[in-house]
Write a protein that binds this DNA or RNA. Structure first.
Length: 280
DNA sequence: AAGTTGTTCAACCGCGGTTGC
DNA sequence: CGCAACCGCGGTTGAACAACT
């Protein structure tokens, strides 16, 4: 025996909400709070599916919604977050107080896509539209977007750990060749080196089968496990961050919430005892 | 003024993970 | 343990409106 159905579809309204329906929903949530969407329509006297009530409240009626046009700062933050998270609208919305995932998704599709194209960038990959495939994969790896294949400059080591090949960049020379690919990699890494953005001893690791299935950290409701899952969602079954070689990565700082030297970037919110760095 | 095309965004749909029975 | 509903998410749709011809 399973649960009983949430609503009788034959007796539910669809389409645009009326002011009366909105008011009923607002009044009910003011009195009883959010949640229990299944029983809400009946209790509130609404001929709507619980799912529809939830959507209406979250996307339109919630009192903390910002409304109005997006600011330039919000635009840039959305672009930055999208380059890291992909189409994870709810995660992106979590970083923009007063904005909903639906609103950001619509805004992305109607405005930001065009904005990026006008800048000569692919809105999905954030790479130059005319970039070569090899250069693109290098950018992909170093910007921690693992949705594509591991590029040739990421070299496998033991235990499924992949390392970025950087030794040829330390003295500014390429020991193997001066191909266009290498030059592009050099330029890209040099940019990071100059701005002290990334520790080039960054390692990425493929999650082992133990980590994926038996690691107790995945079964507990910890932030660390959530972050692991989020990375995996962005990039299954591609690499997740490994902290075995100290990839100091604080997203507060990466997203522009913090300033200063790299070692000070790891805010207390981001540090975890297991060595994994949180979103915060 | 009327018709056509483009844009916006609220709402719906279907899927995957979770949870109650 | 398996089934079925719940919940939340991302993709898509379509009505309303604006801009253009």
């Amino acid at each position: 025996m399973g649960r009983s159905p949430c609503c009788e579809k034959a007796h539910t309204n669809k389409g645009a909400w009326t002011k009366e329906e909105d008011q009923r929903l607002i009044n009910y949530i003011r009195l009883h709070g959010e949640g229990c969407w299944r029983s809400l329509p009946k209790s509130a006297g609404l001929l709507r599916c619980g799912k529809s009530c939830r959507l209406r409240w979250i996307n339109y009626l919630r009192p903390d919604l910002k409304r109005g046009n997006f600011t330039e700062e919000e635009d840039e933050l959305i672009i930055k977050l999208h380059s890291l998270l992909g189409n994870k609208w709810s995660l992106i919305a979590g970083r923009l107080p007063g904005r909903t995932d639906n609103e950001i998704k619509n805004y992305w599709n109607t405005h930001i896509k065009r904005k990026l194209i006008s800048r000569g960038l692919d809105p999905q990959t954030h790479r130059p539209l005319n970039a070569t495939a090899t250069a693109a994969t290098a950018i992909t790896a170093t910007s921690l977007d693992f949705r594509n294949t591991v590029p040739s400059n990421i070299i496998p080591t033991e235990n499924n750990i992949y390392k970025l090949k950087t030794e040829s960049l330390e003295d500014g020379n390429c020991s193997s060749s001066t191909t266009e690919e290498t030059q592009q990699h050099q330029q890209y890494f040099a940019k990071f080196q100059n701005s002290q953005v990334l520790d080039l001893e960054l390692s990425i690791g493929l999650p082992s089968s133990r980590t994926q299935t038996n690691d107790s950290s995945l079964s507990v409701n910890s932030i660390e496990s959530n972050v692991r899952r989020q990375f995996m969602m962005v990039a299954p079954p591609l690499p997740v961050l490994s902290t075995t070689v100290a990839p100091r990565m604080c997203l507060c700082w990466k997203l522009g919430f913090q300033k200063g030297g790299q070692q000070q970037q790891l805010c207390s919110n981001c540090k975890s005892t297991s060595g994994f760095y949180r979103y915060c």
